[in-house]
Nucleic acid binder design. Structure first.
Lengths: 214, 214
DNA sequence: CCTGAACGCTACAGACCTGTTTGTTTATGG
DNA sequence: CCATAAACAAACAGGTCTGTAGCGTTCAGG
């Protein structure tokens, strides 16, 4: 029988009710870190509760299943991502070109980090082929949101076909997310920005309604 | 050694010696299909041998471990991919622009297929974070080869910085591979081609930003 | 002071996983 | 016609996985 150790009780958050979310938050933070670093399927719930210093029963009190925990992980990553995005966007409310370039700087820097392991949304999508998996829905919504925001920028750029331009940006950014392994360090940012500039130029000079395809 | 027997057929393995590779080939074909459709980690060896109609001992005679089987799966996909690529390239030995566009058509068509499940190399890389996994080495080599071939095209295009242009193409194509879930049907090809055209145009004008027509 | 919620801990169920072992069948080459 | 190699079949070893059950402890609020 273990006697309760004061240091233990002090180490973890005070049992102070606060909201019950203290344990939940620690679980989610631990799971997010483990899931991102090692992949979702290779991390068992036993490891999560061990690292979080929490009982397994508590995990299943806060998350119905592991799949729900995975979805919560992606939602957390989604929120983090847009928080960072907004921080960048807020510095360039007037100039859409500058805003886009700042986003690409931010993304390029992120992709070049030594422990970068790819976009969590894309990773989970690759790990779970079933499109109706709860986490897949989060991932799909995240990518739709990315394109939506890019379309907003494209509109402010005055592109003749903003949705098409946004699609191109989206291709580009997702390409950077998965290409870390094949890109040299520091290569992503210049590639992203050069490509974006070429696309903006082309979108300005393109003849509206011209059909290039055949 | 290659005695061929007309009495092939009949559901079960033809006892015909053939090359020993008959069983191996069926194993690899079955595993490849299952791995691609359902993901590598979610398909156990028991299922592979069941679907292949082969004994598990046979699997482990031809592949030392499951990891080796996964690597063989990626090697097979790699070979298939370049076979298709070469078929396209062989039709456009004279015109690099036409060749690139043909490749993008081919890729766009592939990505739009209803049961497209992403690039197997990228999927496996997402499933196995450990960079030293045998399959990861195959995937990395595959992506390096892609960029190498794109650089060849960029050189024949007369780009001033062919390696940079190849990097941009690479970003673009990998982006298309992972963006299937966010792209509308039939959207990939026009996006790919329009982007490639913009990049080629930009690469011809020495400094980005200038809007010059070819 | 009592009740109930939240948490911790241990053990377990039941399934699935990779890889091995043992023993049998089959077919071909010498 | 026999030796050899390869395949088959089935059980098993030893883990790991998700999720549940049982039981004790802490603590806030009435």
């Amino acid at each position: 029988m273990e006697t309760l150790s004061p240091s233990k009780a002090a180490g973890r958050a005070s049992p102070d009710a606060a909201v019950s979310s203290d344990v939940r938050e620690r679980l989610l933070a631990t799971a997010s870190s483990l899931f991102y670093r090692h992949g979702v399927r290779s991390v068992g719930v036993d490891l999560v509760v061990l690292e979080a210093g929490v009982a397994k029963t508590s995990l299943y009190r806060h998350f119905r299943t592991k799949d729900d925990l995975i979805a919560a992980f992606l939602e957390r990553e989604d929120a983090d991502f847009w928080r960072g995005w907004d921080r960048v966007a807020d510095r360039h409310t007037d100039d859409p070109v500058a805003e886009l370039e700042a986003h690409l700087d931010w993304i390029g820097e992120r992709v070049a980090r030594p422990n970068y392991r790819g976009c969590p949304q894309l990773n989970v999508a690759a790990e779970f082929p079933e499109a109706d998996h709860p986490a897949r829905k989060v991932a799909a919504a995240h990518k739709r949101e990315l394109r939506r925001r890019l379309r907003g920028i494209a509109e402010r750029l005055g592109a003749s076909r903003p949705d098409e331009l946004a699609g191109q940006f989206s291709l580009l950014i997702n390409g950077a997310f998965v290409s870390a392994q094949v890109l040299g360090p520091g290569e992503a940012t210049p590639l992203l920005k050069a490509t974006a500039r070429a696309l903006i130029t082309a979108s300005n000079t393109a003849t509206p309604g011209a059909t290039h395809d055949t």
